[in-house]
Design a protein around this nucleic acid. Sequence first.
DNA 1: TAGATTGTTAATCGATTAACAATC
DNA 2: TAGATTGTTAATCGATTAACAATC
Lengths: 212, 212
Amino acid sequence: MYNGKKISLAVIRRLPRYYRYLSDLIISGAKRISSKELSERMGITASQIRQDLNCFGGFGQQGYGYNIESLFAEIANILGVNKKFNTIIIGAGNMGQALANYENFVKRGFNLSGIFDVDPELFGKRIKDIVIMDYNKIEEFFRLNQVDIAILTIPYEYTREIADKVARLGVRGIWNFSPMDLKLPYDVEIENVHLSDSLMVLGYKLSSRGNR
Amino acid sequence: MYNGKKISLAVIRRLPRYYRYLSDLIISGAKRISSKELSERMGITASQIRQDLNCFGGFGQQGYGYNIESLFAEIANILGVNKKFNTIIIGAGNMGQALANYENFVKRGFNLSGIFDVDPELFGKRIKDIVIMDYNKIEEFFRLNQVDIAILTIPYEYTREIADKVARLGVRGIWNFSPMDLKLPYDVEIENVHLSDSLMVLGYKLSSRGNR
DNA sequence: TAGATTGTTAATCGATTAACAATC
DNA sequence: TAGATTGTTAATCGATTAACAATC
């Protein structure tokens, strides 16, 4: 499927947007769309859309455009939406619990199989059928279960240590919510969600208004 | 403070990272740092650091480097960390409640002054001294309070309508957690946190491993 | 077939990196 | 002063946009 030339992260990060717009188009009942029309909806150039898609294959047809349903399926496939990932959450605080309840999660193939914390008060509490477990028993859990992804919703100061541990235990990916740039010496894919960074950028945008 | 030439969003999005690294350096007790040393810690080039900082001013000193504390203060100032923003949360579901409890929030000048939902079961419930209120009374709230920022943690289908409403009521910024690209015909700054996009990018990284 | 729209190459633009004179 | 390191200009690199031949 992939032809060797490496695809830039800028392109990858646009794929979920295409996925969303195509999903909406399917719901609207449309069958085909041209790069031009899609570009107008999305506020990007038609050229960029064609370039992006052609990183992965020639999904369109000259004179016609793109079949929405099949393009959607192609992008879903590229993103691995049809794949299943066994996922655990470490840190059952507010954010951890919010994510555990997050609907889109399972819909996108992320199967929650465990929640861990160090607070004994939380042990045994259920979130969506998943019992919160003692973090100190996580090694045992890894021995008995295949875990693909660890979601880290833990305080800053524990992040490095816990990321290191799950990496050694064999996770393939980490979704990190701590305001820390993880660098692991392992072959683990990391995706950061730096909420405080995002908030500060909003603060900047507001502070600097009128000066631009 | 700003000298007219416009600063790219790429630079702005790096500022919170500088802020974090400088904060850590202060805690470590260091007094000065060169762009070279900081570049090694952050994994970017010294050249980029100097270019970035010089968008805002000459904060360093030849032969010496940068005074950590004063550089930190400059960046804090650029980001508007010292400013106060009156903030409300709309949508008191899991994510809304998690954000309401979010510590960094107040620390960065975002003062939570209201939480709204449509579910009567939630009315009156307190999160950190803030009572959850009826969304249908939000216009009254705006009449009595200055609101700078609205945080939207609401289902996809209501996002457009509610964003439009708070924009008309006069918010200056929106922190949007819905998987939707808001386009408002008002002078409102928008910062999106597309969690499902981020998750899908992680899915891509895992699916495509070995093919790159 | 004629019109439309892609896939793809070429041109442009912007961002990153390198180099070095200025200067602490 | 000599050494170090900035601020800034120039070179490079990569990403976006434009153009157009291929083709449905």
